[in-house]
Design a protein around this nucleic acid. Sequence first.
RNA 1: GUGGAUGUAGCUCAACUGGUUAGAGCAUCGGUUUGUGGAACCGAGGGUUGUGGGUUCAAGCCCCAUCAUCCACCCCA
Length: 431
Amino acid sequence: MKNTKLTTAPYKGTRDTYPKDMMIRNYIFDTWSRVAKRFGYEEYDTPLIESAQLYRAKSGEELSNQLYNFTDKGGREISLRPEMTPSLARMVAAKKNELQLPLRWFNIGKFYRYEKPQRGRRREFFQLNIDILGISTIDAELEIIQYVMEVMSEFNAPKDTFELRINNRYLLDYLFTEILELSEELVPQLARAIDNFSKMELSDFKEYLIEIGLDNEQVEKVLDFLSWDLSMLETLKGKSDGADQLLELFEKAKNLDITNIVFSPSIMRGLDYYTGTVIEMFDIGGDKNPRAMFGGGRYDDLLAIFGEEKLPAFGLGWGDIIMTDYLSTYNLLPDTKSNTKVYVTLMNESLLSESAKLTQELRKSDINTLMCLEPIKLNKQLQQSNRKGIRWVIFIGEDEIKQNKVQLKNMNSGESFLITVSESIQKIKEI
RNA sequence: GUGGAUGUAGCUCAACUGGUUAGAGCAUCGGUUUGUGGAACCGAGGGUUGUGGGUUCAAGCCCCAUCAUCCACCCCA
């Protein structure tokens, strides 16, 4: 039998997470989840695999080619989840009468999309989903926006490096039907063009609009629309729900001292289940991270695919990959510190049980403790603990045992103390 | 899915036009230093040059295929 050598490379578009990277991931996840709980949000979860039907339902007949799907042994068409919202809607629809509204839920989980990997985009990634269901007013948006801003602040994000761009689907509807009187088949094409507006040269953009069938007058109207600001929305008061909602949102945001938000008429979002507000967070400190950090919106009609009544809902999905890129771009990733507090030395083989007993005692006191298991040279042991960034080292050798004490050393300051075990525990817990 | 670039040690990169045994820095390990770390010095290990085929007296270098990464499209839930 021929021995074929296996590659050590992980599967295309996936990545191994070594302990150092894991600390970074945990830092991000802990921040997301800690702040979510601070806002009264509860954690939930859904299966990683779902019926492919669930994702097909909202995009009609056409099954997206980014679905990671397969047929199981029973002939069912299955997909790894590419996003959370349909599963969330399913869960809520299934127990709609039992669940107490409003729901404030969040989840951090893995997702899969079959696409070509690039910067900020892989086949396997994590995403935070945070949603509020059962609130139809703009206050739902405001709560989530406050959450987002608090997370950015916890990450120590400089205020001049990010911007939350906000738009409203109803305003876009107003553009399409009232201003442009566009025929229905042109809407999706124009929507896509508007979504790409910021990435395109103005002349290319105009050309493209003509190409898809707009006349010159309509093109000018689109360009005018894309230059709108809040004052322009004032003139539409009472005429467009989208304008009304945006005005209310920005008014209330001002009262809450929320900064770094801007009305941006070109924010579209791809999903067709969005109904009102749509938001996207951008890195505006440079051009290293051109993709949106996260995106979200209102999806009041989604439960209808389960034959249920509508339920107002607003939420967002926040990917780990671009967030990590962003944090590293601005040097915001913390030093990866060891979770281990104490390193217990092993002076020689005959002291194995003494070291082990001491280690047990420390662990009983809930102190994360690592013990050297081989009687290697002491300077090696110190080097090991130093490299791991462990703060305390405890020496336990014949001299110490005779005095019924241990030697506790602070690796940051270099100080060491000849004290009893319980005194050591106290000292370690103090800092 | 389409187009382009790249692939040499764990990492960052050398190696003339195809020509001896593929080198260096960092990292790792060992020693100087057997009960006290970070530094310095000395030394060692580590490679089927992504993989498979082809051309050639000779391939890291040229050709084909394949895989992976990056970039631009497409798409973006």
